[in-house]
Amino acid sequence: MCKKVKLTSKRNKVYRLLEDEGNSILKTFIDKEDMKRELSILRLLHGRNCRVPEVLKVTSDSIYLEDLGDETLLDWYESIEKTNADSILPMILKLSDWLEAFYDTLSSSKYGNYIMGDVNFRNFLIKDGEIYGIDFEQCREGKIEEDLGKLAAYSLTYDPMMTDWKKNFVKLLVEQLSMKLDISKDAISSEMDKELIKIRLRRKKK
């Protein structure tokens, strides 16, 4: 017997399937092109040992994926800030390593200069202390510093916004991303500032 538990998703229908032989994630797509892109990128990344969920099964409009659990990078981020912990560098290094593997894999494929696009902390899961990326339907052509700037901007604007702890986190994050991906801190900060303006405008409209 299979039990379906609906999961949060803005663009598609996503469920956790609870079965006797083990759990899996069912993702049903509204847009077939989004599904085609995500499936292709998932298989590419998994084949190059970049941590992503394994594709278990594919139907005409759905992908069945390995269930990596519930802990998102955002869960970790909010939890560690509440304890005012300063042991943040190991996770930042793991995130930087994952992003490096992601960009390197795509740059050596037909996707060339594609970026992740949606770098919301909810699109990264933590399992056994390691970071996994999920949700690649929004991947598109762009510059890496766009992703990194968005990542930094999101880091600052999760509730509560702009705390001293978050500012310290972002400073360290930008430093490590700059070194790991060989992109200037100024380029990342410039994209961060652009995204912060967009975030303010979106929230004002709401």
Rank of each mutant, 00 (worst) to 15 (best):
D70Q: 08
K32R: 11
I199Y: 08
L95H: 02
N113P: 00
E71R: 13
E191T: 00
Y132C: 12
S40N: 14
E54M: 12
A153R: 03
L156Q: 02
C2N: 05
L39N: 08
S107C: 00
L17D: 01
R203C: 07
R43L: 14
G117A: 10
K166N: 05
E21D: 14
T59H: 05
L156M: 10
I144M: 15
T8C: 02
D34Y: 00
E191C: 13
N23I: 08
R51I: 04
E78H: 04
R43W: 01
Q138V: 00
K205H: 01
D67F: 04
R48W: 00
K4W: 12
Y15G: 11
M35S: 02
D34L: 02
S108P: 00
T83Q: 09
M35F: 04
D97E: 15
D164V: 09
E175V: 10
E175K: 15
S9V: 02
D128R: 11
L68M: 11
E100H: 14
I41G: 04
D147M: 03
F124A: 03
Y77E: 05
R11V: 10
M162F: 15
D128H: 11
L7S: 10
V14Q: 04
S184W: 09
T105A: 14
I63G: 02
S155N: 08
F136T: 05
A85I: 00
S189G: 07
K36I: 03
N120R: 12
K13N: 12
F29N: 04
K3Q: 13
L156E: 11
H46Y: 05
S189I: 06
D97M: 07
L74T: 06
I131C: 10
K143E: 15
D182S: 14
P53V: 13
M162Y: 15
I63H: 02
V174R: 06
D186Q: 08
K3Y: 06
K127E: 07
W98S: 08
E100D: 11
E33K: 15
P53K: 09
K3I: 15
I41M: 11
I183H: 07
E146V: 09
I144N: 03
S178P: 07
R37F: 10
V55Q: 05
K36Q: 12
S108T: 10
D75E: 07
M179Q: 12
E195A: 05
I88C: 04
T83K: 15
C50K: 06
E191D: 10
I188G: 07
M162L: 15
K27S: 05
K110W: 00
V119P: 07
L156S: 08
D75Q: 02
F121V: 06
I131Q: 01
M162E: 13
L89I: 15
L89E: 14
G133M: 07
S189C: 11
D118T: 05
I25C: 09
N12Y: 02
K4V: 01
Y132I: 12
R200F: 13
I134C: 02
I183M: 01
P160H: 01
I183S: 06
Y103L: 09
E66H: 08
S62A: 15
Y64A: 07
D193K: 15
